Amino acid sequence: MTPEWVINFGQHALYVTMIVAAPLLLTALLVGLLVGVIQAATQIHEMTLSFIPKLLAMAAVGLLVGPWMLRTLIQFTHDIIVGLPGAVK
């Protein structure tokens, strides 16, 4: 394993992590922002009011985007397993 291969692997792993986590994180961000604006406008500051919509929205996005996320992770794992013999010399 060369240092270049390890750095390339680390960069690719971080990229895949960002891409896979982005839909759920962006959903939580947008729903949290929307609920925060509504709470500020109505002056209702209940903790469950911000938690439940985020949970439901993230579950819905997880169901919609889950197969793509799984395919991406499987492809990444496959690339690692296939490329590993060539990396070890």
Rank of each mutant, 00 (worst) to 15 (best):
Met1Pro: 15
Thr2Asn: 15
Thr2Val: 08
Glu4Thr: 07
Glu4Gly: 03
Trp5Val: 15
Val6Lys: 05
Val6Phe: 07
Ile7Val: 09
Ile7Phe: 10
Ile7Tyr: 09
Phe9Gly: 09
Gly10Met: 01
Gly10Arg: 00
Gln11Met: 12
Gln11Val: 06
His12Trp: 12
Ala13Glu: 05
Tyr15Met: 14
Tyr15Pro: 04
Tyr15Asp: 13
Thr17Ser: 14
Thr17Phe: 13
Thr17Lys: 07
Thr17Asp: 11
Met18His: 08
Ile19Asp: 11
Val20His: 04
Ala22Val: 01
Pro23Ile: 01
Pro23Leu: 04
Leu24Cys: 04
Leu25Ala: 08
Thr27Leu: 05
Thr27Val: 03
Ala28Asp: 08
Ala28Trp: 05
Leu29Ser: 02
Leu30Asn: 00
Leu30Ala: 08
Leu30Gln: 02
Val31Tyr: 03
Gly32Phe: 01
Leu33Arg: 02
Leu34Arg: 03
Leu34Thr: 09
Leu34Cys: 05
Gly36Ile: 00
Val37Lys: 01
Val37Ser: 00
Ile38His: 00
Ile38Gln: 02
Ile38Asn: 01
Ala40Ser: 06
Ala40Val: 00
Ala40Glu: 07
Ala41Pro: 01
Ala41His: 05
Thr42Asn: 02
Thr42Tyr: 04
Thr42Arg: 05
Gln43Glu: 14
Ile44Val: 11
Thr48Tyr: 09
Leu49Thr: 14
Leu49Arg: 06
Leu49Asn: 08
Ser50Trp: 06
Phe51Gln: 15
Pro53Arg: 07
Lys54Gln: 15
Leu56Pro: 12
Ala57Val: 05
Met58Thr: 12
Ala60Ile: 13
Leu63Ile: 11
Leu64Lys: 15
Val65Lys: 13
Val65Met: 11
Val65Cys: 06
Gly66Phe: 03
Gly66His: 09
Gly66Cys: 06
Met69Asp: 07
Leu70Phe: 12
Leu70Val: 08
Arg71Ser: 14
Leu73Val: 02
Gln75Asn: 13
Phe76His: 12
Thr77Lys: 10
Thr77Ser: 13
His78Ser: 14
Asp79Tyr: 02
Ile80Met: 08
Ile80Leu: 13
Leu84Cys: 09
Pro85Val: 01
Ala87Trp: 10
Ala87Asn: 12
Ala87Pro: 11
Val88Arg: 07
Lys89Cys: 12
Lys89Asp: 15
Lys89Trp: 14
Lys89Thr: 14
